[in-house]
Simulated assay, not measured.
Amino acid sequence: MKKYIKLGALAAIAAAGLSLYSTTANAQTRPRTGIKAGLSASSLFYDNANATDKKERIGFHAGVFTQLPIGSAFAIQPELLYINKGASSGYSAIGNTGRNSFNLNYAELPVLATIKLGNFADIQAGPYVGYLLSSNVKTEGSLGNVGVNLNPDQFNRVDYGLAGGVNVYFGQLLIGARYEQGLQKIANTTASQAVLNNARNGVGLLSIGYSFN
């Protein structure tokens, strides 16, 4: 009798294990859609002899994402984000000193290849393309404090580059970290190139999100 009880218990454990595996695999192959937001820390990579003491611009990003599984361990994740980029630097020219703050705001579409580590974490990498929505340069120093809404046509409207990062899930909540490196030069005119030279965007993102499914 004990033998049959043991065999029954083993069968029940095996059935429970198969059920758990099936549930986990099914969860991994369902689309995942949600919202995310958080901080952005942006730099402009450029070489200008008059620019000193370069600092990041601390801003924010927010948007939506959808994760489309391709099998149980791989997915494609497109996103649509609003994101702050830019930086600040000191300047010294013709006896005048001060600080310029470059504020660039984009709508951005990353498309990320995603390696799924179960339902608990993702590793992601892929390209992004962004569109410049607005731009602002603020000058503080011996020339006074001035805020100027520069025409975005002074800059390349389209930005593109590569992104990579990780997500960790706590049920439907997620925490993510990512870095994006722009490949497109920002400046588009002689005047903007005189200040920014061959500057490109670089930004780190720290996100908190919620998955609806």
Rank of each mutant, 00 (worst) to 15 (best):
Ile94Asn: 14
Ala62Arg: 12
Leu150Glu: 09
Gly95Ser: 03
Ala62Cys: 01
Ser92Phe: 06
Ser142Gly: 12
Phe45Leu: 15
Phe60Tyr: 13
Ile76Thr: 05
Asp47Ser: 15
Leu150Thr: 15
Leu68Met: 08
Ile70His: 02
Leu150Ser: 14
Val148Leu: 15
Ala113Val: 07
Leu68Thr: 12
Asn145Gln: 10
Ile83Cys: 06
Leu81Met: 03
Asn96His: 05
Ile83Ser: 12
Asn50Gly: 03
Tyr46Leu: 10
Glu79Phe: 01
Asn105Asp: 08
Asn100Gln: 12
Thr139Ser: 09
His61Tyr: 08
Pro78Thr: 04
Lys55Pro: 08
Ala93Ile: 15
Lys85Trp: 01
Asn50Trp: 12
Gly90Glu: 00
Ala62Tyr: 05
Asn103Cys: 04
Phe60Ser: 12
Lys36Val: 11
Tyr91Glu: 03
Asn145Asp: 14
Asn103Phe: 11
Glu108Phe: 09
Ala113Ile: 08
Ile35Asn: 06
Gly130Ile: 06
Lys116Ile: 06
Ala73Lys: 10
Phe74His: 00
Ile70Leu: 10
Leu117Gly: 11
Gly90Asn: 08
Gly147Asp: 13
Gln124Ser: 02
Ala87Leu: 03
Leu80Lys: 03
Asp53Val: 12
His61Asp: 11
Ala93Asn: 13
Lys138Leu: 05
Leu104Ser: 01
Thr139Cys: 01
Leu104Val: 11
Leu109Arg: 00
Gly63Met: 07
Ile76Arg: 06
Gln77Glu: 04
Val146His: 13
Ile35Val: 15
Phe102Glu: 01
Gly90Gln: 00
Pro127Gln: 03
Tyr82Trp: 02
Leu81Gln: 00
Tyr82Pro: 01
Asn103Leu: 14
Thr52Arg: 12
Leu39Pro: 09
Tyr106His: 01
Ala62Trp: 08
Leu81Glu: 07
Gly59Ala: 13
Ala41Glu: 07
Thr114Ser: 11
Asn149Lys: 15
Ala62Thr: 11
Ser40Val: 04
Ala41Thr: 13
Leu109Phe: 11
Leu150Asn: 14
Gly126Thr: 08
Ile76Phe: 01
Ala113Ser: 14
Asn119Val: 06
Asp53Gly: 15
Asn119Gly: 13
Gly86Asp: 00
Ile83Pro: 01
Ala125Met: 12
Gly98Phe: 01
Ile83Met: 07
Leu112Trp: 04
Gly38Thr: 04
Phe102Cys: 00
Gly126Cys: 08
